[in-house]
Amino acid sequence: MVGWAFMAPFALLFLLVFIVPILASVKESFFRQVAAIDEECANPLYGCTTGSADEVVTSSFVGWDNFLYVLTSEMFWSGVGRVMLFGAVQVPVMIIASLFLAILIDSTIIKRVTVFRLGYFLPFAIPGVIAALVWTYLYTPELSPISDVLGWFGLEVDFFSTNLMLWSMANITTWTFTGYNMLIFLAALQAIPGELYEAARIDGANAWQVATRIKVPMVRGAAMLAVLLSIIGTVQLFNEPTVLAVRNGWMGPGYTPMMMAYNTAIGGQISPSGVGPASAISLVMAVLAGLLALVYMLVQRRLAK
């Protein structure tokens, strides 16, 4: 009983913030919001005392319509395609780069590594929106020293073009999270018992063999977790495309599925709108994220054998 008392505050808030919303959105996903004419307001004699938008929106039960809409929406699937392509390239690049940097820093080839460890991790302190804002300016040719440098080599790169946009975003995400993942790998590397290295040295292993035969396998658990969290993060990609879309109208309101869900909930740009269809998008995305995570874990397990 005492145990429950200590558990209760968290459990109650968890219920309010996670469980109830999930149930509510499952229910809402079977309803669609229509801006209906308020009977009383149709007659000017009665007058309208309140003007809140919620009061003229009515919800009606539509069965599986919202899900059918999402599953047949071209905007939804092109968004899904974009985040999948993004994830298929960005996640491996980031994880391999983090692991490589962690192994270099852990290798004791150089003694003073604090400045590197801290410097790599620092971007994680920059909120995603602000990182996207700074990089947006760094991608703008008139403002950016990067364009100046590229210009010395006669290169002219349009970071905002339809072909490059996804990779410009991938760079922002990589910049933000590589150091974070590196620290996770570094912690896992430092937990490897010294006797393993000792044994490898006696067997005459060189540094490369130590790295590939001991270090990489020993951080497998940490790597798996990092990849899983990155996949889940990619599915929900929102901040970077939202900021970039401010100056790149062509990206539209549904460049990623999470953007589409937000703009559907808020209304104005996508039809049908409202929390009903938006809930359906969120639920379909959650199922897709779960499937992706499951596939990844199964592939991992098969590879491990």
């Binding site: 809402e28 929390v275 969120s282 994220a289």
Partner: peptide
């Protein structure tokens, strides 16, 4: 079990459901 699952929960996807509540 719930907390371990919660670690992998896509939090941003939960924002719209939270908004409803």
């Amino acid at each position: 079990g719930i907390i371990s699952a919660g670690l992998l929960l896509p939090i941003a996807l939960l924002t719209i459901p939270m908004f409803i509540v």
